[in-house]
Design a binder for these strands. Sequence first.
DNA 1: TTATTAATGTGTTATTATGACGCAATGTAC
DNA 2: GTACATTGCGTCATAATAACACATTAATAA
Lengths: 267, 267
Amino acid sequence: MQDNLTLRKWYLIEKRMLKDIIENNENYQPGLSIDCVIFGFHDNQLKVLLIKIPNREMWSLPGGFIPVDQDIDVAAVTVLNERTGVEGIFLRQFATFGKVKRNDQHFDKKILEYLKIEEEKGKWLMRRFVTIGYYALVDFLKTIPKPANKDEVIEWIDHKEVPELILDHKEILDKALDTLRMELNLMPVGYNLLPEKFTIPELQKLYETILDKKLDRRNFLRKITNIGILTKLDEKKSNVAHKAPNLYTFDKEKYDEVLKNGLNQGW
Amino acid sequence: MQDNLTLRKWYLIEKRMLKDIIENNENYQPGLSIDCVIFGFHDNQLKVLLIKIPNREMWSLPGGFIPVDQDIDVAAVTVLNERTGVEGIFLRQFATFGKVKRNDQHFDKKILEYLKIEEEKGKWLMRRFVTIGYYALVDFLKTIPKPANKDEVIEWIDHKEVPELILDHKEILDKALDTLRMELNLMPVGYNLLPEKFTIPELQKLYETILDKKLDRRNFLRKITNIGILTKLDEKKSNVAHKAPNLYTFDKEKYDEVLKNGLNQGW
DNA sequence: TTATTAATGTGTTATTATGACGCAATGTAC
DNA sequence: GTACATTGCGTCATAATAACACATTAATAA
């Protein structure tokens, strides 16, 4: 357990970069970090992009620090790109986490020794950190994570089988999923999570997976088509068991319009 | 204009306290602040609690800094209490603002001289700040703001007549209102904003004011009563022009239940 | 080859929610 | 009393929702 504490915020960043940041810490916002929750969808599973801490059984969200001359929204994109190679996606800020307890106060000198950083400079990392959470929905197939170095392991992990995460990352992930579930009622979802051509049952599985509940096939079809964001193709999915389902695409123009105006305005 | 820049983050806090914080800045989270958007309702107007910068025509949201040993949610409550005397209210975090441009980089030495703070220590305030936004709905009549000292002016201001605010506070206020409008579709609102006993037209005015649009009287009544959070009293409002409207109270138990479960779950 | 099976596609019905109104009742001002 | 603004209660057509029936399709097992 002490070993886990030892690592503290090391997870945040690749070793070489971490050393660099600590030694030039005047260029970064102190005590403030960013963590990203990246959702993908594959094999009827909602996946989350996680980074494994070298040689440990602990995983973490991809995160990093904020250059003093970068907007936080920009920094979030930068951070994600540096950690995972993922680029060009829209990150949405959903919450900021700032419990005192989320920081354990036992950052070990061993790490600083290992990184050959003098204690004075290492203090930068030892202080209390507040973290800003961002999430995104990405195309699983187009998003191939690239580890920053050979020691790092980045993987898509089924959100139902997420292993133990460091610090409060589980809480951050859960909050991101809660936010996503809320958004589902306010805007269409799927454009980034499904391939170009998809079937209604696939789209329904996505909704069911996110909401973690079963929906009625027929009612779902009616509701989703009534939104007017789908284009039915004259093409069926091939190589499937049973009846071949029809293929659809999103009508991007209408999709964006609904994204902008929202689904149901309530009052 | 230069004069406004001069003030920079002074607004955040009362003069004596500011000096105290700067001189003991190791006890505060650097580069991170909290700003509160406090909504009240009175005279059919949505009011916002604002603080006037001494001798200036610039106003600001009540804000402050985060002690390193306080959770941010706790710090928000503390900050609000210190600035306004308001206590015991539920603050909801809604967004974090971190554009680089939100900080002007011209904090003037004059302020530091005025506060008799050495330049080295004053640098703490000169760095880039990210701010976490919180908002709350409070009972206008029970919430009487108390300035921290005689130089400070704190006032309830109609949100339609908000004057120029410092930095990006207008943006923060707008975002808070947007969030409130969203929440209106997800949960009941009014418990903290209306007096113990109120009329349906009053409640409707509240909704109309927040949403900034007219609602149909009759449909509103039906919809709001169907939620099941209102108790009709055997009592009418007195001293009113025209027909005396009936009085209602919130059924707190059911209100809280709906708060917890949400209004309409969509899918 | 045919029957079976497990999906998909399409439709029906009852119920409920919504939006747009009509009209009587009430209390104040004149 | 009369005019008037506002409240209380109700109607009606339409839309949205939930629950369910049945035909269609394509792979597979007999």
